[in-house]
């Protein structure tokens, strides 16, 4: 069985409260934020490795990004993936999700046979959750999104999808694209053996010389959406701290709730 995991290297947005706005000119000031594997993609890598451990599969991890994305791929190898490929070329810069999913789909076609494609449900920088379904469309295969549990039965997978208030059980014929949520597993730390092996591993870089994609379908030119402006949102106005001892605070809070008519039965 061949599993392909698509991952993205992203800035650690948990650290982003370090983002400050320079009051003089409203520019964003950031202090050295490190790059990590998109957390949901770590769940995808982990799931692929678990399947590999149970059903004997080969796991290939790919990422489209700038050269430093190799670090993310190395970590995936250290966790247990078999192969890694970086898809990188200056002409891919500025890709939105359509161009990204197109480029990835072409790289996957070049890789050849596969049974399952796993991705995290969304990237924590873009937050669009669009690349997974886009990829499935370009490849012409079924998709299932927001999967929290996955079981392989021959040429089928059975999954549990997270809906608004319940879970849906779906069976899909492979090949298919699956996007996963955090609930699916706890990603492992790479072992030392894995880390050392990954350090020495060859990670091929596939540029457009190799993929030969039409320039109007990749990068900025292949992106229907354009970012015209980026700005820091207005912080909402601060409220007040309710003072007093425990009982007083409770009373005051109830008063405010009453005053603002927030409860139907309390006026």
């Amino acid at each position: 069985m061949h599993i392909i995991v698509c991952i993205k290297q992203v800035p650690d947005t948990e650290e982003l409260p370090r983002v400050r706005v320079n009051p003089e000119d409203n520019t964003i000031v950031r202090e050295g934020i490190k790059s990590i594997i998109n957390p949901f993609d770590e769940n995808a890598i982990e799931e692929a490795i678990r399947i590999k451990e149970k059903n004997s599969a080969v796991v290939t991890v790919i990422s489209m990004g700038p050269p430093q994305a190799k670090d993310a791929l190395r970590k995936a190898l250290a966790m247990g993936a078999d192969k890694a490929i970086l898809i990188s070329d200056p002409v891919f810069a500025g890709s939105d999700t359509l161009a990204t999913s197109f480029t990835l789909s072409e790289a996957i076609r070049k890789i050849g046979n596969f049974d399952l494609i796993l991705l995290g449900k969304q990237a924590i920088d873009g937050d669009t959750a669009q690349v997974g379904p886009g990829l499935a469309e370009w490849l012409g295969i079924p998709q299932v999104t927001y999967v929290r549990r996955l079981e392989i039965k021959d040429k089928l997978i059975k999954v549990e999808r997270v809906l608004e208030d319940c879970f849906e059980i779906v069976e899909i014929k492979l090949p298919a694209v699956v996007t996963v949520t955090k609930e699916i597993n706890e990603p492992r730390y790479p072992s030392l053996k894995g880390l050392l092996r990954a350090r020495k591993a060859e990670i091929p870089v596939w540029g457009n010389d190799y993929l030969g994609l039409p320039l109007d379908k990749v990068g900025l030119d292949g992106s229907p959406t354009r970012v015209t402006k980026v700005f820091v949102p207005e912080p909402p106005p601060r409220g007040k701290i309710i003072e007093g001892d425990l009982n007083q605070k409770v009373e005051k809070l109830i008063e405010e709730i009453k005053k603002r008519n927030l409860l139907k039965w309390l006026r």
């Binding site: 790479p190 072992s191 030392l192 053996k193």
Partner: peptide, 20 residues
């Protein structure tokens, strides 16, 4: 168990005996 899963116990043991 966590340290074991990371292969840390085998750091100084030669590879032929399962270490690094």
């Amino acid at each position: 168990e966590k340290l074991a899963s990371l292969d840390l116990f085998g750091v100084t043991i030669p590879p032929e005996y399962g270490g690094l």
